[in-house]
Design a protein around this nucleic acid. Structure first.
Lengths: 214, 214
DNA sequence: TCCGTTGTATCACAGGCGTGATAGAAAGGC
DNA sequence: GCCTTTCTATCACGCCTGTGATACAACGGA
């Protein structure tokens, strides 16, 4: 006995419409009316589900963070135990996981685009400050975790400073995302992957060196 | 016999006011009235020097690109010939030059902040598209030039792919700038420099290996 | 059937925006 | 002195924004 409207589905519909508007027009021109129109809803209906513009914006950003977070978690579980893989595959798997954050297809491109707009807005908009910070910390936790796991299974060069390498790899991912979104004609997805693989290769133990796994 | 007002000085004054507003409020809230108020000018006066908002915005971004460009040029000349320096100093000098692009002090932080806001806006605003692209290409030219000069003086590991390394270092710089501007509590200037030096160190020829310079 | 809840749709308001028009002050060549 | 150019200042217009208020339809349990 389903209710004729599912509020959660409605909110998702609105959020998806908002994402499309942000991607197409930029956050600056993403007004309530534009989102309502994109969702083919009356602005009155939209406001029935979101009390204010700020509510909608926060909900949308939180939704995106949740989606990315659960996708990453899923990917981590799919990989399973890293220690029992051969070393080249370890690096490949790590790259595949981190590439979830790169705009390599239209879906991730849209995510990164919206994410960038939200984060730049968050700099001067207190309403998003906590979400932006939480996202930045989450990204660093992921990167650090990838690095420590690689290191634990002996894939990495000895003597690396984890703090510095975490910031370095995070900056690399952020910079690649930024360029790929803002200047796709300069940096295409294949080059992004090349750079990421090169970086991980540089961090890895030289071929022939025995790892210290276990 | 000085004229009572110097139009160029007036424009510079307005542009500086615009930068302050963008840094403080974000590009979204940077209206003509806000800039005029910040410059302590009447909006009518402001519009006497800039025909339209778009004119002002373009002029401001172009001004910033010019300033950064000439500062980089000056720094390059100050360094002079790289070949006749000892290798550790070569890396240090390269890092110092590239660090002109990082938000390490308040002045550069303001620049990078404005630059970021302009570039995200440029994604969906055709008026800034060309300037944004030109800046991205300029940054890559600089990075590539630094890398090839280091390589020519024998400071770099052999076998590096210049295209990939250019994108890698560019992404690293962009990512560091992004994080340092959006999350200064997570990434401070010292860490930025650490990461940059670590990266250049990784690219450099291992100690004890004779360089191929001259 | 009645009624409360939920959803849809519309109007109106105040506020900010860029911009065109215009009036008046100030400056400088003659 | 005057006249032209440059600069300053203000008004008004149309547009778009978020939001409060309100009316009306539709649903679901009693």
């Amino acid at each position: 006995m389903p209710k004729h409207v599912d509020p959660d589905a409605r909110r998702r519909l609105v959020v998806d419409a908002l994402f499309r508007v942000v991607v197409r027009e930029g956050l600056q021109r993403t007004s309530l009316r534009a989102v309502a129109s994109e969702a083919q809803l009356n602005i009155g209906s939209l406001r029935h589900y979101f009390a204010s513009q700020q509510d909608l914006m926060r909900f949308a950003m939180q939704s995106m963070l949740d989606r990315v977070g659960s996708r990453l978690l899923e990917h981590v579980e799919r990989i399973g135990d890293l220690g029992r893989r051969p070393r080249p595959e370890q690096l490949q798997l790590a790259a595949g996981l981190l590439a979830e954050l790169l705009p390599l297809d239209e879906h991730r491109r849209a995510e990164v685009t919206v994410f960038l707009d939200f984060n730049t807005a968050a700099r001067t908009s207190p309403a998003f400050g906590d979400l932006s910070r939480q996202a930045a910390e989450g990204e660093r936790r992921l990167v650090r975790r990838v690095l420590t796991r690689l290191d634990a299974s002996g894939a990495l060069r000895p003597g690396l400073d984890t703090d510095v390498e975490t910031e370095r790899l995070t900056a690399l991912l952020d910079g690649l995302s930024l360029s790929a979104v803002l200047h796709p004609e300069i940096l295409n997805p294949r080059e992004c992957v090349d750079v990421l693989l090169t970086h991980l290769g540089d961090l890895s133990r030289p071929d022939g060196t025995p790892g210290s796994a276990h």
